[in-house]
Design a protein around this nucleic acid. Structure first.
Length: 347
DNA sequence: TCTGGGGTCCTACAGCCA
DNA sequence: TCTGTGGCTGTAGGACCC
């Protein structure tokens, strides 16, 4: 397959999406710090899914424990996650994108990639149309990045927020991408950031200056190659319009760590039931069942069992999950338990 | 003082088999 | 018959993303 020379890719990222949906349906929230996460009760377990820009001024950001967010800003409005409402808004904004091209990749509830290489109008004009269309259909704003590939488009959309429009082409990499901190590179998380800083690498430009072999030595063949290419703005991955899930899982964190085996067993059975329901909704069967247990000290382990054939029988999935559970020595309190079905096959 | 839930992909290793 | 090798599959854990 030959890659067409010079693609044009959009990355559309909704601004503070969950918070924006909440503000839209409750205008009295506007201008006040709003934090969405968990059950909406900051005295309970849970993390921040989205904080609006007002709340971010207090240092609140996503993935932060709700209790910490509350300490930083006790007067913030804490709301529960309402996936139904956000999914509805997501469908609306994606319908605007699909009216432009069918070459759309879902990249989560609040973002998407478009391949607009073959669009007749200019990218800027198409992007402005998208912004206007989304504003009209949802009342919300988004930020758009335009670039020759997904990697750069994603970095671009993050450069000007909210309501931004940023264009990056191959000639801008040295000036606009290389000065950025390594953490801005997709695929670089806290661990890799720490590792890179340990060898004196702080910016994408410094990363790009490292020989490919050095990166492979430090990070292995696959990830080393990726880091080398990504730091030079190279990404040939296509916009994927359709894919099948590879696993279906359910997990839950207890409000308080539990020791009672009955509670753990009852929860595991309920999770297995939900996984089976999700599998049937998706019209698929699984061959491998695994469980996940996280203890009070955050030690996390998994146990898996592969069956002789595919199944969507609740009894079989539940029994297999329990067989996995029996292989775990539960001496500490349990914080989280989960069930996962993998090795999926469509009916 | 803490650290959700639903996913993907990668690596390492063990066991089996040709 | 024994031994080494390489591929495949299953399992476990880790990093990352939204």
């Amino acid at each position: 397959m030959n890659q067409p020379p010079g693609r044009t890719i959009f990355h559309i990222d909704m601004d503070a999406f969950f918070a924006a949906v909440e503000e839209k349906r409750n205008p009295s929230l506007a201008g006040r710090p709003v934090v969405i996460g968990g059950s909406g009760d900051p005295s309970k377990r849970g993390v921040v899914s989205t904080a609006n820009y007002e709340a971010r001024k207090y240092g609140i950001h996503s993935a932060m424990p709700l209790r910490v967010a509350f300490k930083l800003c006790p007067r913030a409005i804490f709301l529960p996650v309402d996936y139904e409402a956000y999914s509805e808004a997501s469908r609306k904004f994606k319908s605007v994108l699909l009216s432009l091209t069918a070459l759309m990749e879902n990249a989560g509830i609040d973002e998407a990639f478009l391949d607009v290489t073959h669009l007749l109008e200019s990218p800027e004009s198409a992007a402005e149309k998208i912004k206007a269309g989304i504003k009209e259909k949802t009342g919300l704003t988004c930020s758009i990045g335009i670039a020759p590939n997904k990697l750069l488009a994603k970095i671009a959309s993050d450069m000007l927020k909210p309501d931004g429009l940023t264009i990056i082409n191959e000639n801008d990499i040295e000036e606009k991408i290389w000065p950025l901190p390594i953490r801005k590179l997709y695929g670089v998380g806290p661990k890799t950031e720490e590792h890179l800083k340990g060898i004196g690498i702080h910016t994408i430009g410094q990363l790009a200056a490292l020989p490919r072999e050095t990166l492979i030595e430090h990070f292995g063949e696959s990830y080393g190659q990726y880091l080398c290419d990504a730091s030079h703005g190279i990404d040939e991955s296509p916009v994927i319009t359709h894919w099948e899930p590879k696993s279906i899982s359910r997990e839950t964190t207890f409000q308080e760590d539990v020791k009672n085996w009955q509670v753990i067993a009852k929860t595991l059975a309920a999770l297995a039931k939900q996984v089976v329901a999700d599998m049937r909704d998706d019209g698929c069967k699984a061959k491998t069942v695994s469980i996940k247990i996280r203890f009070s000290d955050f030690q996390t382990l998994t146990r898996a069992k592969t069956l002789t054939g595919h199944t969507d029988s609740e009894e079989e999935i539940r029994k297999t999950a329990f067989a996995c559970l029996k292989r775990v020595n539960i001496e500490k309190r349990v914080r989280l338990i989960g069930v996962r079905a993998t090795n999926l096959k469509k009916n």
